[in-house]
Amino acid sequence: MKNSNSSIYSKVQRNWDWRAAGNFIGGGVGSGLIFWSILLSPLGYDSLWLMLAGLALVGTGLFCVWLEIGRPWRALNVFKHVSTSWMSREAIVAPPLFAAGAACWLFEPLLAWPTALLALLFLYSQSRILLADKGIPAWRHPRCPQLVITTGLTEGCGLLILALPLIDTHQPWSWALMLILLGLRVLAWQHYRAGLEQASAPPACQKKFTAINPQFLWLGHIAPAVLLGFAFVQAEAAMLAGILAIGSGAWMKYTLICKASFIQGYSMQHIPVRGQRAPQRSVSAH
């Protein structure tokens, strides 16, 4: 379709930038780290500092959002629509998450388990924020949440593998977990992209994902998997695998939020019939 008005075409949204992406990246890796560091703590390491690092990352992500909103001094209004808004729900989960983390640190180590659960809820809420945004085909796709969740969990595990030797010792079980998560993330990624194609998402959006696909697969999945295998010979290789898993996940989410977020575009199902009646035709303006 030719068009003299470029605004009819689907274009990338410009309202959410790196700050919004920062929330999804920080929130994802932070909540993933909290969850896995607590869940794997029976292996025999102290998860406290890892959990606190995860909380700091979640907090950094929320701070990024605060920087982005137009009226930051009204930010507390964000709690007002828990009945339907996943952004409100994300916000409502955050205070108990931090409170549970602080209480775990200061008073009761057993509170680590509810903290892990709240971290998971936080990650889930983030994934649903995107799903509810009907104006962005790449976000509203039903397979988007599973990609966001598996990416957050993979990044969190990557950070766990990276940080564990710094505060304790390597944990080969975390490497095995990482291999599983890498497999799940690559499946979610391929499944999501296939879904976008089936749903006829804007071609420009799909091109953005196609452009990062080779690097995302090789640097984000195959290379970390090989490095994790090599880690049984040279343990430090696992740390590099963790870095790659985190970096690739963050890069993919940045692409999802800032680069591939093409808006819906208009549609004109029928061309108006003027004068002599013409055959019906449909026009979809991406």
Binding site: V78, Q264, Y266
Partner: peptide, 14 residues
Amino acid sequence: CIGCSNCVMACPYE
């Protein structure tokens, strides 16, 4: 309104 832009993203009609 806090200007979070979530509604801008949710609107399919720009």
